[in-house]
Design a protein around this nucleic acid. Sequence first.
DNA 1: CTCCTCTGTTCTGTTTACAGAACGATTATG
DNA 2: CATAATCGTTCTGTAAACAGAACAGAGGAG
Lengths: 202, 202
Amino acid sequence: MPSSQPKATVTSFPDLSASVGGRIRDLRTQHGISLTALAVATRLGKGTLSELERGQRNPTLDTLFAIATALSVPLGDLLLTESSDLVRGRPHGAHVHGQSIDAELIGRWTESAEVVEVYRMTVFRGRRKSRSHTQGVVESITVVSGEIAVGVSDDPAHLISGQSHTFLADQDHFYEGLVHRSSTVLVMRYPMTPETAGEHGE
Amino acid sequence: MPSSQPKATVTSFPDLSASVGGRIRDLRTQHGISLTALAVATRLGKGTLSELERGQRNPTLDTLFAIATALSVPLGDLLLTESSDLVRGRPHGAHVHGQSIDAELIGRWTESAEVVEVYRMTVFRGRRKSRSHTQGVVESITVVSGEIAVGVSDDPAHLISGQSHTFLADQDHFYEGLVHRSSTVLVMRYPMTPETAGEHGE
DNA sequence: CTCCTCTGTTCTGTTTACAGAACGATTATG
DNA sequence: CATAATCGTTCTGTAAACAGAACAGAGGAG
């Protein structure tokens, strides 16, 4: 028996709690709900959530599960901060967070003189405006689940699960979640520029 | 302590703790190490692990992390019960070759009770028939470049760059390239089955 | 301006997860 | 058969996660 163990209370990483807490806060604000509302939904104490989001707590499994359920995300998503999911070892996986959207790059290649990028994009309730990108950007979005409005301001489309829409994104456009959470796949296509030309050699 | 209060320490699901505990016990025995050895490795109490594996505890994030580290699995893997999320260990780049098509899996996750898979699919000139898959498979295809005909035999669609089509793939369908080479993104969605839910290599 | 409602924070007491020791149950070793 | 390992379980005191109330700041309505 290695009796010389100091109790030490290693507390593993203070930043683990902090990172999980930050992720929870991000998800909550993306859903546009207040801390009090989340407390009601999860049947957790308000103060508990406050300290938890600030990384000053070491939450239990039950607590994490209650939060994940209320935020409609799988339990693992609360823990996937940085370290875990880069095990995939791909340069992909870059996350883009934004007003009411959360996108992950899952594929990227070049096609003739164009760059093609595929995102798994989650759209939360609310509207996200997007300025024009590079000249000649074409976006195709397919709704996996949920319901969204999307497209250029003049001619938007209303999409439900299984429907798609393609539009020119080199003008002002928007993504608007019409339910709590919608899952989509976004294909973005734009002309290869000198900078993007040399990237990511096949 | 028969707390007659309705608050009752909701404890969400007793089976959640039990399921996570069981998973830990499985992993530990798979590693061929004893409970005492794991206690040393994790710097956790022996009794703590015992009760935890039997589902009589509600472990904290720190505890889970310590165990995951000692067992060399990502943290999320301890929580993968039925509502598994990101399917890892399934490296991207799995290729599917077939008559006149060539598909690469670039994304896969679960959405509610469905599995979503995203493929970068290249369609060459010619026709490829596909038998019905599992019940309830929905496919959405977006053409990035080229020109194809696709869908169920009764009601096919003719697509050019930027267009999409969604159809039920649990019946006979086909992909037909109308030019030398067409680039597409295919989103496939099907109900989660016990096998796809989470497999435990016994 | 005052009042009101909302935000998120910090405070108290209770419940409980935890470490570590004591326990019993099983299998080796002579 | 003894007895000595180690296995996993159950016990006991302490630190902390939790619920809920009291608190403080920021807008909004009148």
